[in-house]
């Protein structure tokens, strides 16, 4: 897929989702914990401090946002991570765009 059309699809689908499902739009506004896999050393300090027992490092290992429905968005994992692996992201699509630009640039 061309880069251009990728973005257009991305933004289009993002806005459509929001229109279709208010609940989802609210969730997107709240945001979620997002890892930077390249910083993670799998020490497990994050999951150890999670009050609901989410093994956050498994998400970090795969570089995926922590979308576990049990997440109470307390931010403990972000605060305790010794490596700055985790951050709070409210605009998941913005993030995705940034990441995509980075990889796209590397591949040119």
């Amino acid at each position: 897929m061309a880069k251009e059309s990728f973005f257009r699809t991305l933004f289009k689908s993002a806005s459509q989702d929001a229109d279709q499902d208010d609940q989802q739009a609210d969730l997107a506004k709240v945001g979620c914990v997002v890892p930077d896999a390249s910083r993670c050393v799998q020490c497990g300090v994050c999951g150890y401090n999670c009050p609901v027992g989410i093994q956050v490092r498994d998400y970090a290992h795969r570089g995926l946002p922590v979308d576990d429905p049990r997440c109470i968005t307390c931010g403990n994992c972000i605060n305790v991570c010794p490596r700055g692996t985790l951050r709070w992201e409210t605009q998941a699509h913005e993030l995705l765009k940034d990441r995509f630009l980075l990889t796209a640039d590397l591949q040119v």
Partner: peptide
């Protein structure tokens, strides 16, 4: 297990079991 995590085991920040990745 996470070798960098050993320091956090030593600091009692995580349990010995938690270091297994």
């Amino acid at each position: 297990y996470s070798r960098p995590g050993l320091a956090y085991v030593f600091l009692n920040e995580i349990s010995k079991e938690q270091v297994f990745a």
